[in-house]
Design a protein around this nucleic acid. Structure first.
Length: 723
DNA sequence: CTATAGCCTG
DNA sequence: CAGGCTATAG
């Protein structure tokens, strides 16, 4: 195609096509499962499955389990196996079915093949896009999983051979034709909804759909191996469930129209149309793709919105319950600890102070049914509820966030005099009382942040772009942004994360870039093509052009301003995002930084940021975990992190210095969990092993949360600047 | 050869 | 936080 920057991109398009046509290139056995999707999708049996799969982070790395599983130890290198296992467990029952389906589909090769294949393809597409939150990530994770297994260091993986399966061939002309037919059919189908779908819901995240298709495709490819195949079964189910849900949704919203049926009918009715489509040229094809994408977005947005709100509502309720239980538990522990202290006078001196400050037995913990994290109410200071200070505190001036309630007010705890929270000796002096172990990491606590603002190349223009100082475009931009977030929301619930996992999304997401460019007038953004360029730095030319010359604002397909320069504002935002996700995939990052024109460099930079965030985070964790141990903590349960905990406060200071957001409760839980993980690992002398932290990383990676959509709002971004 | 994760440094 | 370096992976 034209404008193909990178091989990946080129492949992406091919992939899209293949997805759409459900074509070969895949080992037969793998391919066979597609028909199964088709059958499953139409069935309703998915309802049950659906909520099994609703597990947000489950997909992460393909090994993720529900939050409730969080505690499970994955200490060894068997995580992969474990995941696989879990998947197997869940999918077992359907395997047989799939097999049957496979057999069936194999049988109908020639005659019905066309028809069936088409149907399968369309359904596949629909399912791919209809399961935004769960399935998509699922696929993505599956991919991650595969790749990770291949690359996971520390643990010599045996699945290596599995790798190469997904190499793609070059484009096939016939494939294109097929693809076009499918596209037109689908597009045509969606046209029916043009009127019923609010235009304002049109999002700019359309590339995500493509992305997902891409991922789905890869997921299928990866199914070649047994274990992988099983995972895939899981995905298929998810998709089926997704489609089921999607259909139900759309049905209710559109006079009970059955999507699948419609698509099928449309398919049949459009055979003629496909003819004309056949001789489109690349440009036209791209246009078509763009349109299709747009349509799909519209349709999906509506559904996604509904699903999301429903999901989060449900989720919030659960969490509330969880929090309550937690509270009770904590109180119990508190008592326990106190008793313990009483019996250990000599130790008391140290314990009472540092330990308590770190672990802060939650007096009246913030069990204010902390409305969960993600969509926490602005007023929810619960997580920061300050026990003993409340009153006397002077009103601390803080930057109000007028237009964005979500920002809420900074937790009071941040303003509390340190005296109220005796800093642990570690954090202050850095002299561990009795640490015998190698505290390599612990010792050096990189504290002085805020050093350089990261972006040395920040240009006024870029800044302006970021702030949308030029009103006109800004408002429009903003408006669309806000609206478009609805679509983006689909990612949150299951933010693909990647621990020590090669970020597949980074590669895959290139497809986003690709399509984005396709949509835009290719002439505008003439970014040097990274792929073709030899080095990531794109050597002199590439670098210069993209980082300096091309630093100028650009406009995306929606006429919104864009920059390829990461500014301090972006950095702040990234930090805040860290409260929700520790392992965001680059794809997610891209979604949440819509005003950034991503390229190899800034993508790497952003990724690096999170890497740095994590580094700091884990260093703190290890430090405090060791401190707790040094102070005589005997059980992981004794490690309770409250919003008043030293650890917690340190982290807040680091990532939320200006208290720009109300830190999600989940973050606290994550911190606590991390602390415990470290504690347990250290207690069992795991820290002697080479990469003993890897398992911990994995556990934590599963705790990523959904990022509030308002993060995508440029308007919100603005506020960060003046905060 | 290119890319990422992770660790270390400045 | 950015750079640099290494190991690993495709």
């Amino acid at each position: 195609m034209v404008n193909i920057d990178q091989p990946v991109i080129a492949d992406s398009q091919i992939i899209l096509r293949e997805i759409l046509q459900n074509r070969e290139r895949i080992p037969l056995d793998t391919d066979l499962d597609k028909p199964s999707i088709m059958h499953d999708t139409t069935s309703v049996q998915m309802k049950t499955k659906e909520h099994e799969n609703i597990v947000p982070r489950n997909e992460l790395n393909g090994e993720h389990s529900t939050r409730s599983d969080r505690g499970s130890e994955m200490g060894s290198d068997e995580e992969s196996s474990i995941n696989d296992q879990s998947r197997i467990d869940e999918t077992d029952g359907d395997d047989s079915k799939s097999d049957a389906e496979d057999a069936r589909s194999t049988g109908m090769n020639s005659g019905d093949e066309t028809k069936e294949a088409k149907r399968a393809r369309v359904e596949n597409i629909l399912s791919s896009m209809s399961h935004p939150q769960y399935m998509d990530s699922e696929s993505m994770y599956a991919i991650n999983e595969v790749r990770r297994q291949k690359r996971k260091q520390t643990v010599p993986q045996q699945h290596d051979q599995a790798a190469k399966v997904r190499k793609l061939d070059g484009p096939h002309f016939e494939d294109d034709l097929w693809n076009l037919r499918q596209l037109s059919a689908v597009q045509n189908y969606f046209r029916q909804y043009d009127d019923s779908i609010p235009k304002h819901l049109n999002g700019f995240n359309g590339m995500d759909n493509i992305h997902r298709l891409h991922q789905t495709y890869f997921a299928n490819l990866s199914a070649r191996h047994a274990e992988e195949f099983q995972k895939e079964q899981q995905q298929l189910q998810n998709r089926a469930a997704a489609l089921g849900a999607f259909e139900r949704k759309v049905s209710s919203a559109n006079d009970h129209i059955n999507i699948a049926e419609h698509v099928r009918e449309t398919m049949n009715a459009n055979k003629g149309l496909s003819q004309g489509v056949a001789d489109l040229d690349d440009r036209e094809l791209n246009e078509l793709i763009a349109n299709l994408k747009s349509k799909i977005e519209e349709a999906v947005s509506v559904t996604v919105d509904k699903e999301l709100s429903r999901f989060f509502q449900k989720r919030n309720n659960n969490k509330t319950k969880e929090a309550k239980e937690n509270h009770e538990k904590n109180n119990k522990l508190e008592t326990k600890v106190e008793e313990k202290r009483a019996s250990e006078p000599e130790k008391k001196a140290t314990t009472d102070h540092s330990l308590s400050s770190i672990l802060q037995m939650p007096d009246r913990v913030n069990n204010n049914n902390s409305n969960n994290t993600s969509f926490r109410a602005p007023e929810r200071h619960s997580a920061f509820e300050l026990p003993k200070l409340g009153v006397g505190l002077p009103e601390i001036p803080r930057t109000p966030f007028p237009h964005h309630p979500p920002l809420g007010y900074p937790p009071l705890s941040f303003y509390l005099p340190t005296t109220l929270h005796p800093p642990s000796m570690y954090s202050c002096t850095g002299i561990p009382p009795e640490q015998t172990e190698a505290l390599s990491l612990v010792v050096n606590t990189p504290k002085k942040k805020r050093t350089k603002v990261t972006d040395t190349r920040l240009s006024p223009r870029a800044a302006r772009a970021l702030l949308h100082e030029n009103g006109t475009l800004g408002s429009v931009f903003e408006h669309e942004r806000a609206l478009s977030t609805s679509f983006g929301q689909m990612n949150p619930p299951c933010l693909p994360t990647s621990v020590a996992i090669p970020n597949p999304s980074l590669n895959h997401s290139d497809i986003l870039t690709y399509y984005k460019e396709q949509c835009n007038s290719p002439a505008d953004n003439d970014r040097p093509t990274p792929s073709s360029s030899t080095s990531p730095s794109e050597t002199g030319y590439g670098f210069m052009k993209s980082d300096y010359f091309n630093d100028s604002d650009v406009f995306d397909s929606h006429g919104k301003q864009t920059t390829d320069t990461l500014t301090p504002m972006h950095l702040r935002k990234a930090k805040l995002m860290f409260f929700y996700v520790r392992y965001p995939s680059s794809a997610i990052l891209k979604v949440y930084f819509p005003d950034v024109q991503f390229n190899k460099n800034n993508t790497a930079q952003l990724v690096k940021w999170f890497s740095n965030f994590r580094e700091f985070y884990y260093i703190q964790m290890e430090k405090y975990a060791r401190q707790a141990i040094a102070e005589g903590c005997k059980h992981a349960e004794e490690l309770v992190v409250t919003t008043d905990s030293e650890l917690y406060r340190v982290l807040n200071l680091h990532y939320n210095r200006n208290n720009q957001i109300d830190v999600p409760e989940n973050f606290r839980l994550t911190v606590q969990a991390t602390l415990r993980e470290f504690y347990l690992a250290i207690m069992s002398n795991k820290d002697a092993e080479p990469s003993w932290k890897k398992p911990i990383y994995k556990v934590i990676a599963r705790m990523d949360d959904a990022i509030p959509e308002y993060f995508k709002s440029p308007n919100w971004m603005d506020q960060l600047s003046d905060a």
